[in-house]
Design a protein around this nucleic acid. Structure first.
Length: 364
DNA sequence: CGACGTGTAAC
DNA sequence: CCTTTTACACGTCG
């Protein structure tokens, strides 16, 4: 049976939420920033609203660059408030879930909804759901979103990118090839700058160019898996189901006040990150592997990891982190670190299911 | 094969 | 001048 999938993307989410609670900044360019705390303007742009984007201020850009672009203009710079955005997001996601047979949240501001069953494969029905969703989010939270509708997750995501903000774009199965054909390879979700460069050297520029290339020739250049991925992206093929997946890893990373090779200072920062990690673990998740993440002066990332007997308290493995730090420096004498982080993986979830289920299991 | 480290990508 | 978090593929090593 043909599927019908919606992709919902909240427009300039952080900036929209800020405009909502600060009426005085409405109508102005707004830039929401992650300040690293090293210097006055060190850090990066998390999200900018559409007025700021018109001035060339985009996510990922260093704050200092953005301020230069903003020179002399009436632009609002704000620090991120993740806790607040998470609250708003949670309410919206709950609302979205109501409209789906199957639901998958992919980030704080994005989700996929499989409406195949409820709509029995009918696109107008899916469009109606999209309109309802847009109305509800606008009414209840004052935020606009862009929706893409397609025969799978990938096409719905690509469709949604077509019209923003406050867009609604439908791409039916029979329209997929035409919809994708002229898009530059790098615009296809999942194909980034590096891969685009590689493709360009082969004379491949657009989705149609990839599609015209034989899978066998792609395999020679990219290997079996990546070739298949490229081919599928070009043709709009995606069989992956809409389903909520458990996280496989959790990480926390922070920027040091200044570059350092002082293991005590680094260990102190790691300890803070561990306490923070425990908040995420919430007594619900155990882990088997821990990693130290290091980013040096030249922004080169390295990791050092160790598999340990299962643990559920990030702070309990601090001695192991100490060992990993020492290992890093003995293998990288003289290097200075700019940022450090921790990661736990090999997760197992202690199913704290509702008592009903626990009881039914117990009954057997 | 499992563990480990890197690179790519998206947000 | 350069944030944060997650996923996944791939190469290598034992």
């Amino acid at each position: 049976m043909e599927r019908v999938i919606l992709h919902v993307d909240l427009d300039a989410f952080y900036a929209s939420v800020e405009e909502l609670r600060r009426p005085e900044i409405r109508g102005k360019p707004v830039v929401v920033c992650v300040y690293s705390g090293r210097t006055e303007d060190s850090g990066a742009v998390a999200t900018s609203n559409y007025l700021a984007r018109e001035l060339g201020i985009k996510s990922g850009m260093p704050i200092a660059f953005a301020k230069r672009a903003a020179k002399g203009k009436d632009i609002v710079f704000l620090p991120v408030d993740m806790e607040h955005y998470r609250e708003v997001s949670e309410r919206i996601m709950n609302l979205l879930e109501e409209h789906a047979d199957r639901f998958q949240q992919v980030s704080i501001d994005e989700a996929y909804l499989d409406v195949s069953d409820g709509c029995t494969g009918n696109y107008p029905c899916a469009e109606k759901i999209a309109q309802e969703i847009k109305g509800e989010i606008k009414e209840q939270e004052g935020i606009t979103c862009s929706v893409g509708i397609g025969p799978n997750k990938y096409v719905s995501k690509m469709a949604g990118k077509r019209r923003k903000p406050d867009g609604l774009t439908v791409v039916r199965a029979e329209e997929v090839a035409d919809f994708l054909k002229d898009l530059p390879a790098g615009k296809l979700h999942g194909i980034g700058g590096k891969t685009e460069e590689e493709l360009n050297t082969l004379g491949i520029k657009t989705a149609a160019d990839i599609a015209a290339y034989s899978l066998t020739s792609l395999e020679k250049e990219f290997g079996k898996n990546k070739a298949k991925l490229l081919h599928d992206k070009a043709l709009g093929i995606d069989d992956s189901p809409v389903e909520q997946k458990d996280k496989q890893q959790l990480s926390r990373i922070a920027t040091l006040k200044e570059d350092t090779d002082d293991t005590d200072k680094i260990f102190k920062k790691i300890s803070e990150l561990c306490s923070d990690m425990n908040k995420k673990l919430q007594n619900k998740i155990a882990f088997r592997t821990i990693s130290l993440i290091t980013i040096d002066t030249h922004l080169q990332t390295q990791t050092r990891s160790e598999t340990i007997p299962e643990a559920d308290d990030a702070c309990s493995v601090l001695p192991s982190y100490r060992t990993l730090i020492d290992r890093f420096f003995s293998e990288n004498p003289g290097k200075m670190l700019r940022r450090v982080g921790i990661r736990v993986s090999g997760l197992s979830y202690k199913d704290v299911k509702d008592k009903k289920e626990q009881k039914s299991l117990f009954d057997y």
